[in-house]
């Protein structure tokens, strides 16, 4: 559910993918372009330009990493959920995120990258994941706000990806989107319940909204004018809707929800524009956003360290499962002999 709607180069400082006219077979290139222009789909065994493949591997693996790292901020609250019901819901949601990561890793693997390569990219810090998870979840209200706003923003991003030109990615997104709606609704409902509580509980919700609102708007990526990769992504049918358009859609959808909930969105410039038939909103702090993307957010180090630790501590389990499988197979062979 947590795609970064735009392409961030993986290694810090790296320039965008070189899209120089390739020396690849022009006939194959022409057939590929024709299929894209006809809104056709590309499948794993089909010929594709190297740059298309690279872009997809990077985007899908970043998306997968985001799902997996996204389990951490909410996972922190499983043991502290306020009731058994909320705990069961949160476990189910976090489990879904793990599943989403798996669908996406599988989709990326069809492009010829291995799971180990991708995990190594994440664990070594080379690969990016959605920077939204580099902020802390300070109170229980944060869990609700993540469901409502972070998942809400992610859904806006992901629905158009169901029509992505790469078949396995599109199919994975269909599955993800089906499961996603529960995530947003459970978060919103948890907040509705808090808003019927004490003044302190209401203040907790408002505080969480204040801290997450701008980060969620930044999730859609830089303004279209500063998003040089977008055009190529659109050309390839990987990206279907621009960053600014998605962001606007999210703002327009969220304002009435905030009203029903009884919270204010922390933006003095947020107001209905009769002429545009959209809400206007204020300036996003992009400097802070890039600081976080580039590793200097409040939780970057902690998140990565937690992932690496979990992976390393699971190493013996992965090895034992393989050894057990080999032993079982040998025993069956012997019995059969």
């Amino acid at each position: 559910m947590y795609t970064q709607s735009f392409n961030v180069p993986d290694s810090p400082g790296a320039k965008t993918v070189a899209l120089a006219p390739s020396s690849e077979d022009p006939a194959l290139q022409a057939a590929f372009d024709a299929r894209i222009d006809a809104d056709g789909r590309i499948e794993p065994q089909d010929w594709m330009p190297e740059a298309y493949r690279k872009t997809l591997v990077r985007q899908i693996s970043q998306h997968a990493h985001s799902e997996i790292v996204g389990m951490l901020p909410e996972g922190n609250w499983i043991s502290r959920a306020p009731s058994l019901k909320r705990k069961a819901i949160l476990i189910a949601k976090v489990q879904d995120e793990g599943g989403h990561g798996l669908y996406l890793y599988s989709a990326a693997e069809t492009l010829g990258t291995s799971r180990d390569q991708m995990l190594d990219g994440l664990h070594s810090g080379r690969a990016k994941y959605s920077s939204i998870f580099n902020y802390p979840t300070l109170t229980w209200a944060d869990v609700g706000v993540i469901g409502w706003l972070v998942d809400g923003a992610a859904i806006m991003n992901q629905v158009p990806l169901c029509r992505c030109s790469y078949g396995p990615y599109a199919r994975a997104m269909v599955r993800v989107c089906k499961e996603e709606s529960f995530h947003q609704r459970q978060g919103y409902e948890a907040l509705l319940v808090m808003m019927t509580g004490t003044a302190e509980q209401k203040a907790m919700v408002q505080d969480a909204v204040n801290r997450w609102w701008w980060k969620c708007l930044a999730m859609f990526g830089p303004p279209d004018a500063d998003s040089p990769n977008s055009a190529q992504g659109m050309r390839w049918g990987i990206k279907r809707v621009s960053n600014d358009e998605l962001r606007q859609k999210f703002v327009d959808a969220t304002v009435p929800q905030a009203k029903v909930l009884g919270v204010t969105l922390p933006d003095p410039d947020l107001k209905w524009n009769e002429e545009r038939q959209h809400y206007d909103y204020g300036q996003i702090d992009w400097a802070e956003f890039w600081e976080t993307v580039n590793g200097n957010g409040p939780c970057n180090k902690e998140r990565l360290a937690t992932r690496v630790k979990a992976h390393n501590e699971g190493q013996w389990v992965r090895e034992a499962a393989l050894a057990h499988a080999a032993k079982k197979k040998a025993r069956e062979m012997k019995d059969a002999a």
């Binding site: 669908y103 599988s106 693997e109 994975a172 599955r175 992965r318 499962a321 393989l322 499988a325 197979k329």
Partner: peptide
């Protein structure tokens, strides 16, 4: 067909 996954053996 609904997808793929990694596992040590068929039972897993």
């Amino acid at each position: 067909h609904c997808g793929s996954l990694h596992a040590a053996d068929a039972a897993q």
